[in-house]
Design a protein around this nucleic acid. Structure first.
Lengths: 248, 248
DNA sequence: GTATTGATCAATACACTGTATCATCGAGGG
DNA sequence: CCCTCGATGATACAGTGTATTGATCAATAC
């Protein structure tokens, strides 16, 4: 039975507070941090499929089962990876910004992280993020909003943050999916849709999708940055609207 | 080599237009639709992990390799599953709604589908949705918006639909993740956070998360329906705002 | 100083996955 | 009647996460 140290009873003891096992210096000074870093490096270069316990262990010159001394399951390793990214994007100081720039920089930091680590788009929202860094990130966000003028009660803060978070999550997921598709097909999405893809050409030739055809020919396809920002501004405007109606 | 029938060259020939292979009546009248339905049933009851080619085939009294006559890869099967759900939620007729109710019902239909098929939250946005039903769904949405008063150009339509879609995606993902966590732990999220979980209790006891502590004690935790609707209304308000500023 | 214990790590093993290959077999055409 | 061809089932392979088993080695007890 694995070493468990708990306050009262036999609780599951989430990984965040399980004690890091002592490492004897003989084979190699392994640690949870090194394992997570190795996994993140693998995922950064080859995507999440490249993260297998065997490959991570091989990177660290260890047998696969050695990792189980530091991590109970692969999902825990993924949780640790996500939490490590949260450490990257947690704002350093609760500067006294107004809520709008606070929320906007929150979304932008998450987006930057997801662009650095594309695998994040597959993991974000897939499991509850309750690691210490995720909590610190949340705490920083919430306290900044709570202190910002305009937000009176904590419920408004939560609604606003939740809405922005949901938008960010969805936008990132679709953006990164599109980016992958572009890489896979070797052409930009517009190229792909416009005429190159015979599949799309035939689908549109059926005449069943007149509006889509119109979109592909007439619509401006802005770059990803402005697409994200436009949607984000839209959400922020919505928050401002509801804020005004409440303050009145 | 598999049978490929293409217009010009050796194109990948997405699954949507590959001809359904003829079935000889001898073992069992298999079909792509039956395979997809079996996979959906498995996923509905046991989640996406339950969908393996072997299990799907076993449901249909067939060997695993038999499916490869109808589906080239497992990812294609997942694509077909998603497209089948799009068929469920495509609005029947382009009724002349205003854009607000059109977008709202779009979001609500996707949410209902995701609540029926929780695995959808894992798949939505994970790959580009370009099946015929997804395209029909998109076409219906876009044409409804295009016809709605207030939306002048197609770019506005795309921005609005994209923002709502992103919000819906992210909100659904977090909502369903939370629902799973509740089921797994056997208690509602608020219960879980408030005091029951020793992990949270200890984290809050550190004093590093004062705002989170305040949230847990003071904030109202509305039910999932109103949470989703509140955020959605927020996004719609934002669209209305930007719409007004453009029309002026 | 030696014996015992206890932890830690590597090796093996298992159940399972997606998929390639190959032998079989049965219907359709000459 | 034979022959071909295409679908099917069996087998196989590489890879996955993880349980179990044995060996090895440091710390402790005597």
């Amino acid at each position: 039975m694995a070493a468990r140290r708990n306050t009262t009873e036999d609780e599951p003891a989430l990984i965040w507070e399980r004690p890091e096992p002592p490492h004897r210096p003989v084979p190699s000074p392994l640690s949870r941090a090194r394992i997570v870093r190795a996994a993140i490096d693998l995922a950064d270069t080859g995507g999440l499929d490249e993260v297998s316990l065997r490959k991570v262990a091989a990177t660290l010159d260890a047998g696969p089962m050695r990792l189980y001394g530091y991590v109970a399951t692969k999902d825990e390793l993924l949780d640790l990876m996500v939490d490590a990214v949260y450490a990257e994007i947690t704002p350093p100081e609760p500067t006294g910004e107004d809520w709008r720039t606070a929320l906007r920089s929150l979304a932008h930091r998450t987006r930057q992280a997801a662009l650095r680590h594309e695998w994040l788009a597959d993991l974000l929202g897939g499991r509850p993020h309750i690691g210490p860094n995720a909590l610190a990130h949340l705490e920083a966000t919430m306290s900044a909003l709570d202190a910002a003028p305009g937000f009176n009660d904590i419920d408004t803060v939560m609604r606003a943050a939740g809405t922005v978070h949901a938008y960010t999550l969805g936008a990132l997921r679709t953006e990164i999916t599109g980016r992958r598709a572009e890489r896979a097909s070797g052409m930009t999405e517009q190229q792909w849709q416009t005429a190159s893809s015979p599949y799309f050409a035939r689908m549109l030739a059926t005449g069943r999708y007149p509006t889509l055809a119109k979109i592909m020919h007439e619509a401006a396809h802005p770059d990803t940055d402005t697409t994200f920002d436009t949607g984000l501004d839209c959400v922020l405007d919505g928050i401002a609207t509801r804020l005004g109606s409440e303050c009145r």
